[in-house]
Amino acid sequence: MQQDGLILELQNGNERAFQRIYELYSESVYGIIYSILNDEAIAQEILQDVFLKIWNNSSSYNSDKGRFFTWILNIARNASIDHIRSKSHKNSKKNLAADNFVDILESRSNFSAKADAIGIKKYIDILKPVCKKLIDLLFFKGYTQKETAEELEMPLGTVKTRNRACINKLREMLAE
């Protein structure tokens, strides 16, 4: 079955189509979620939540607005970031032993592996260093634009403008 037909069947409530979509995309989606959360159990939980959202909101997907895989990745990314910003996640991190912080810092800075996990590493490597840093903070670490501005010690407006320019450059490269 072609992808468009599969998506249409999903939107019509076909459970087999949903199962096939899960088979096709779950591994990649899990990779994205895990690269953001760095916790297998929570990543599995979020993965299930993401596919529930896909099932429940499939009618909101519109091919004119972007590719299906991009739509799924956005759901996964947003769910992961929502979890990071949740009160329960923040409370659980308060109780970590000091020796865990080294691992967290090392994994959070492993930008190259995260970019490679979604297949855009070769494109990101071409970008300017400021773009790499912005994409890392905003998309892989879940920072808000305000938090990114504070981290990089630059005005919020500059972060917004540079982010837009970096994403547009990435889009141009991906379209080629």
Rank of each mutant, 00 (worst) to 15 (best):
I42Y: 05
E45N: 11
E45R: 04
E45L: 09
I46K: 03
I46R: 02
I46A: 03
L47P: 01
D49R: 08
D49E: 10
D49W: 08
F51R: 02
L52V: 10
K53A: 09
K53L: 10
I54E: 11
I54A: 01
I54C: 06
W55C: 00
W55G: 00
N56I: 14
N56K: 14
N57M: 09
S58I: 09
S59W: 15
S59I: 15
S60G: 08
Y61V: 02
Y61R: 00
S63T: 10
D64A: 05
K65Y: 11
K65L: 08
K65S: 08
K65P: 05
G66I: 05
G66H: 07
G66K: 08
G66Y: 07
G66S: 05
R67Y: 13
R67D: 13
R67K: 14
R67G: 08
F68P: 01
F68Q: 05
F69W: 02
T70L: 10
T70Y: 12
T70D: 07
I72T: 06
L73F: 13
L73I: 13
L73R: 11
N74C: 09
N74I: 10
N74T: 09
N74E: 15
N74L: 09
I75T: 09
I75C: 01
A76P: 10
A76Q: 10
A76Y: 09
A76H: 04
R77N: 06
A79W: 08
A79L: 11
A79S: 12
S80C: 10
S80E: 08
S80H: 07
S80K: 01
I81T: 05
D82R: 05
D82W: 01
H83Y: 13
H83N: 03
H83D: 04
H83I: 01
H83K: 07
I84K: 10
I84W: 02
I84M: 12
I84C: 09
I84N: 02
R85V: 03
S86C: 07
K87A: 04
S88Y: 13
S88E: 15
H89R: 09
H89V: 10
H89P: 00
K90R: 11
K90P: 02
N91H: 15
N91F: 06
K93A: 02
K93Q: 14
K93C: 03
K94H: 09
K94G: 00
A97M: 07
A97I: 13
D99F: 15
D99P: 03
N100E: 14
N100M: 06
N100R: 10
V102D: 14
D103V: 00
D103Y: 15
D103G: 02
D103T: 06
I104A: 03
I104Q: 06
I104V: 08
I104P: 00
I104W: 11
L105P: 00
L105Y: 15
L105S: 10
L105A: 12
E106T: 04
S107A: 05
R108K: 03
R108C: 00
R108Y: 15
R108S: 08
S109P: 04
N110K: 12
N110F: 07
N110Q: 09
F111R: 01
F111K: 06
F111Q: 00
F111T: 03
S112G: 01
A113M: 08
D116T: 06
D116I: 01
